[in-house]
Amino acid sequence: MRLEKIIQSLDAVVITKFMADSEEIDWACATDLMSEVLYYSRDSSVLITGLTKQQAIRTADIADIRVVVFTRGKEPDTSTVELANDKKVTLLITPYSMFTACGRLYEAGLRCCPE
């Protein structure tokens, strides 16, 4: 799935300078637990999380995840956005809860990372 479709499905805004628009997203991983991201995610995944700390960006970068969605309209602090810009991770904010965000992405055709 193209990033544009994810943005559209989530009514999301992009808050980083870098936008992985050519990125093809194959899977979704939704959690606030960073070890779960490292354990279950695949590359070419989108991470959906309520954890708006730098750790979410570090974890995404290590796991080759290039797109991170923050739920419930939560805005990260500047250092988190700066780190995402530095690591070329695209950050999105969606007004929806994690449950609704996952539901909308599922409906749009995205599936959970296979375990």
Partner: peptide, 15 residues
């Protein structure tokens, strides 16, 4: 609260 400590660290290293 920082997203860590879910008890997956060592199993993940082994995996």
């Amino acid at each position: 609260e920082l997203g860590w400590g879910s008890g997956m660290g060592l199993p993940n290293m082994k995996k």
